[in-house]
């Protein structure tokens, strides 16, 4: 335990707001809003708007499940961030099974979305919940093979060991397929951009369609936080952690995180949403063999 335990939620919050602000500016710019950069404060106004708003109650809603589901998102994001090394500083909890812990927190998000979608007792959110589970089935196996490849390359499940193992060559270069699959699953963890069908526009907001006021605020903040944490995890996993010339390690880690985050946010504006029935086939017939092959190659090198 260290002081990073106190800093951590704050760091996640800052990255969350940064992601939301960048997303708002990109959206305004694509929509041709004059002076698009002025949209940077959209997340702050949205927060103010949701804070003074009534909650919406649907008939026969399961309030406990809904609240639990909504709350899982930010909690899982912060807990997942707890195992990430912050540049030069130690992680809040540099546990020996850090990669497994990270993966477990990310799967908790599925439960959160499903419970929130189920709990409000309305058809659109329910279908959104179905889609989250389908999405999980599609991306989770390739994602786990990508993480296992990293663990094999580093011969450890501890994040700090993974960073040390990239002293000579970043894993993004050593195992490019795993890196690309990880970026895709980073989008899926936060059901963002091309992987956002659980909260899709075609379902009037899907799992979030009936959320209002504080519920929507926590749900949305948790989702942005998960995206930020997924981007931050890419740095120790594939981009050498805080390694870099001249600048201090923490600054390198921050810069790399922001770069990955920017790419993820930008992707959302440049790609259509993937339909899960289509993506499922692709994931199981193309991504799983590709990641297995990557794992085999990495395993042979590690031997």
């Amino acid at each position: 335990m260290s002081e990073s335990l106190l800093v951590l939620p704050l760091l996640v919050a800052v990255l969350t707001v940064a992601a939301a602000a960048f997303d708002a500016v990109l959206g305004a710019s694509a929509a041709g809003v004059p002076g698009a950069w002025r949209a940077w404060d959209a997340p702050l106004r949205e927060t103010a708007r949701l804070l003074v708003r009534q909650r919406r109650s649907t008939l026969a809603a399961d309030r406990l499940l809904r609240r639990a589901g909504v709350l899982v998102l930010p909690v899982a994001a912060v807990l997942a961030a707890a195992v990430l090394p912050l540049g030069g500083a130690r992680a809040a909890s540099d546990m020996s099974v850090g990669i497994v812990w990270f993966n477990a927190m990310e799967v908790a998000v599925w439960a959160g979305v499903w419970l929130a979608g189920w709990g409000v007792n309305s058809a659109y959110p329910l279908v959104g919940g179905y889609r989250m589970i389908a999405q999980g089935l599609a991306y989770e196996l390739p994602h786990m093979f990508a993480l296992i490849t990293v663990a094999v390359g580093a011969e450890s499940l501890r994040f700090s060991d993974v960073v040390t193992a990239q002293h000579d060559l970043w894993f993004a270069v050593q195992m490019p397929v795993a890196f690309l699959v990880y970026l895709l699953s980073a989008l899926a963890m936060a059901f963002w951009g091309p992987m956002s069908s659980p909260v899709g526009a075609d379902l009037a907001g899907g799992a979030a369609a009936e959320l209002s006021g504080a519920d929507r605020l926590v749900f949305s903040a948790g989702r942005h936080a998960m995206l930020a944490v997924a981007a931050a995890a890419a740095v120790p996993l594939f981009l050498g952690g805080g390694a870099g010339p001249l600048l201090p390690a923490w600054l390198w880690a921050l810069l790399k995180t922001l770069a990955v985050l920017a790419v993820l946010v930008w992707t959302a504006h440049r790609l259509p949403v993937l339909r899960m029935d289509r993506f499922m086939t692709f994931a199981w017939t193309a991504l799983i063999p590709a990641t297995l092959l990557q794992l085999l190659v990495t395993g042979l090198v590690a031997l």
Binding site: A31, V33, P34, A42, R56, Y124, A209
Partner: peptide
């Protein structure tokens, strides 16, 4: 709406 930079909502619960 575009001129004002107001982003449309998708559902009644989201809209004000």
């Amino acid at each position: 709406l575009r001129r004002r930079g107001w982003r449309p909502a998708l559902a009644p619960a989201e809209a004000d």
